[in-house]
Computed example of a mutant assay.
Amino acid sequence: MTDSAFATDAFIQAQIAAWMRELGSVKRLAPKTLEAYGRDVGQFMSFLSGHMGGAITLQSLKELRAADIRSFMAQRREESLGSRSLARVLSSLKNFFGFLERENILATEAFNAIRTPKIPKSLPKALTVVEAKQTITRVDEMEEEPWIAARDMAVISLCYGAGLRIAEALALTKGDLEAEVLRVTGKGGKIRMVPLIAPVRQSIETYLTLSPYKLWDDDPLFRGKKGGVLSPRIIQLRMQQLRSALGLPPSATPHALRHSFATHLLGKGGDLRAIQELLGHASLSTTQIYTAVDTERLMESYAKAHPRG
C-alpha cells in the first residue's frame, strides 16, 4: 500500500499507478529508483491531504500553489532530508505532474517558481594505482576456497579494469563474454561494449576454469557458494576485509574502484568522450567530474613535491 492510497481519491490513485507503469516499462527505471519516485509522490499526496484537509482530488491538484510545494519541501528538510534527496523528491514530483500534463489531465505552473536545492559537489574518492592493484592481488589471501577467491578477484577486476558498476558486473551472463569485449547492460537497460584488457580477461577465465558450476550462455556469470546468483553484499564484505588488511579508508568500496578506473585513465591522457562511453554515462557532464579529481591530485602532488609548496 503506497503512502498516497488513503490520501487521494480513486482517480488520482489510478494516475499514479499509470505513471509508475510508464516509468518501469517505458523509461525502464531501476527498481530502487522506481520505488523512491513512488514513495516521494505518495508522501507529497499524504502531506497535501493533511494540508488541504481531505482526500486529494483532481480539483485539489488544480488548486496547487507554489507555497504548498515549498511547505512540503520545508517539512522534508525538517525531517533531516539532505539537499541531494530533496532534489530527487522535487524531480519525482515534476515527473509525475509532467505525466499528467502529457496525458492532458492537468497542467500547473506551480513548479515553475520552485528552485532545485543546491547540491554540494562531492568528488569521487579514488584509490591510488598501487592501492587498486593491491586490492585485486590480495583477494586470494582472504579466501581459502580457490574458486571463490578467483570469483571475487574477477568481479573486483571488472570494477577497476573495466569500470563496471558492481550491479553491472553481477548481472553479466556467460554469453556477454566475447573474444576481446564485454557486453554490459547499464542503467536504463542501455547496452555498451567494453574492451577487456588481458589481466581482466585472465581473471575471468581463471574463475571459469575453477568454478564447480557448469554455465550456459544465458546463465549468470558469477555464482554464489551454493550456486545461486552472487549477492553484491558478498563483494562488499570482501572489500571490507581488504580495507582492513591494507589499511584503506572507508571510502574504498567496489564503486571506488570504478572511480579509480576513470581517474587513472584520465591521468594517463585518456579521452574524456571515450571514458564517458566506457562508464556508460548518458551525459558528458557526469564524466567531467573526473577532471576535477585529476586536477585535485595534481595540485596535491605539486604542493608536496615543489620546493615552494
Rank of each mutant, 00 (worst) to 15 (best):
residue 139 V to W: 09
residue 291 T to Y: 02
residue 64 L to T: 05
residue 237 L to G: 01
residue 16 I to H: 07
residue 253 T to Q: 03
residue 70 R to I: 06
residue 122 S to W: 01
residue 117 P to A: 07
residue 244 S to D: 12
residue 43 Q to P: 00
residue 84 R to H: 11
residue 59 Q to I: 10
residue 50 G to E: 09
residue 216 W to R: 13
residue 246 L to N: 05
residue 252 A to G: 06
residue 290 Y to D: 08
residue 5 A to H: 13
residue 120 P to I: 00
residue 258 R to K: 12
residue 208 L to V: 03
residue 233 R to M: 09
residue 279 L to E: 03
residue 240 Q to F: 02
residue 265 L to K: 07
residue 284 L to M: 10
residue 123 L to D: 10
residue 194 V to D: 10
residue 104 N to V: 04
residue 51 H to D: 13
residue 88 R to M: 05
residue 232 P to D: 05
residue 237 L to S: 13
residue 90 L to D: 03
residue 217 D to P: 04
residue 75 Q to A: 11
residue 22 E to L: 13
residue 114 I to K: 09
residue 82 G to M: 06
residue 89 V to W: 00
residue 307 P to Q: 07
residue 5 A to G: 00
residue 137 T to W: 08
residue 106 L to Y: 07
residue 287 T to N: 03
residue 33 T to K: 13
residue 30 A to E: 15
residue 137 T to M: 14
residue 296 E to H: 09
residue 52 M to H: 11
residue 22 E to A: 08
residue 243 R to K: 14
residue 120 P to H: 07
residue 181 V to S: 14
residue 264 H to D: 04
residue 239 M to P: 02
residue 96 F to G: 05
residue 143 E to I: 14
residue 288 Q to I: 00
residue 291 T to H: 00
residue 249 P to M: 09
residue 95 N to C: 13
residue 73 M to G: 02
